[in-house]
């Protein structure tokens, strides 16, 4: 690995934070403590972590309905995230967005999004603004394999290339669009084949290998930052849980064997094994990290549970900005 041990630990930490947040959210959902839908990112941690690890704080990302991982990887605050999932007034969106709209503009995270494919055009706008201002910021659009079948994605990819914008299209190919396998919904195997149609380079990376994802991201981000235009990264990955909710086995549309096979390639445990093997980490060090972050999650759950619900007078607040120039 040419990636330094410090960076390896940073990527590892991002992935463990995502895993712990998502497992906790899953437990709370099972206990009926979370209203609404829950799309867990478990299994795909290497993608958000490897890519966000290549970004600066003032770079922008757009996300998906499976968006918790992107916010955590960009540095999201557990307390405000957990409070939002519980619909509390202390949440990131004051209880008005929930899981599917979680966001932190101060971290450049322009929102999870309940509409498949809708984030890419917004990322194009952020990339346009970044080029316009000329401060070297880039934008990353996260989206799934299913989103590449939506017109918004095609329009965004084409426009980004036509305008030569500083953007990276990051495809999380988890092989399923909701409950339908990819091979039923497109005639190609690799999403990356689409990149050439817009005139941008594309690479396939192992989305279970955070180092591989990170190296691809460093290259694509550097290219965008230097004015080299858009790229597409296709990360082959897998969601360990169902499209939504916490079931993982016994699903009608995929086999338990398949799930088990992908779990053998768990992005966190494989990285830990490699780092121990390469003598840049010890089991004890990892145990300490997990314990520390578990503690953060417990704190966040308590914070969220103790937080007040929004009051009914908040329904009409923030529909519009009041400070128009009028």
């Amino acid at each position: 690995m040419s990636i330094t041990p410090a960076v390896q630990f940073d990527l590892h930490r991002r992935m463990v934070r995502i895993r712990l947040f998502e497992e906790a959210a899953g437990r709370l959902a099972e206990a009926a403590k979370l209203p609404g839908f829950l799309h867990l990112y478990v299994g795909e941690e290497a993608v958000a972590s490897g890519i966000c690890g290549a970004l600066n704080d003032d770079d922008h990302i757009t996300s998906t309905h499976r968006g918790h991982g992107h916010l955590v990887a960009k540095g999201g605050d557990f307390n405000r995230m957990m409070a939002e999932l519980m619909g509390k007034s202390t949440g990131y969106c004051k209880g008005k967005g929930g899981s599917m709209h979680i966001s932190d503009l101060s971290l450049g995270m322009l929102g999870a999004n309940g509409i498949v494919g809708a984030g890419s055009p917004i990322a194009v706008g952020a990339a346009f603004a970044n080029k316009y201002r000329g401060r070297g910021q880039v934008a990353v659009a996260f989206f799934g394999d299913g989103a590449t079948n939506i017109g918004a994605f095609h329009e965004a990819a084409n426009m980004a290339c036509a305008l030569h914008l500083p953007i990276v299209f990051a495809c999380e190919n988890n092989e399923y669009g909701e409950f339908t396998p990819r091979d039923k919904t497109m005639a190609i195997t690799d999403i990356v084949d689409r990149a050439a149609g817009y005139g941008m380079p594309g690479v396939i990376v192992d989305g279970m290998d955070v180092i591989a994802v990170h190296e691809a991201a460093l290259e694509a981000v550097a290219k965008a930052r230097a004015g080299g235009g858009p790229s597409l990264i296709e990360a082959k990955t897998y969601r360990f849980y169902n499209h939504h909710g916490v079931q993982n086995l016994g699903l009608k549309y995929r086999s338990d064997d398949e799930v088990a096979k992908w779990k053998e390639r768990d992005p966190i445990f494989t990285l830990e094994d490699r780092m121990i093997e390469n003598k840049v980490a010890t089991r004890q060090r990892f145990d300490d990290i997990w314990a520390e972050l578990r503690n953060d999650i417990e704190t966040a759950i308590k914070f969220a549970e103790d937080s007040p619900l929004p009051t009914s007078d908040q329904v009409l607040v923030d529909v519009y900005s009041a400070n128009g120039g009028n």
Binding site: H60, I122, A126, Y132, E155, M159
Partner: peptide, 18 residues
């Protein structure tokens, strides 16, 4: 821009929010 109405509005939304 290209004839891409979704991306035209998206361009505006993304640039406005940033």
């Amino acid at each position: 821009t290209p004839i891409s109405e979704q991306a035209i509005i998206g361009l505006g939304v993304g640039a406005a929010v940033t």
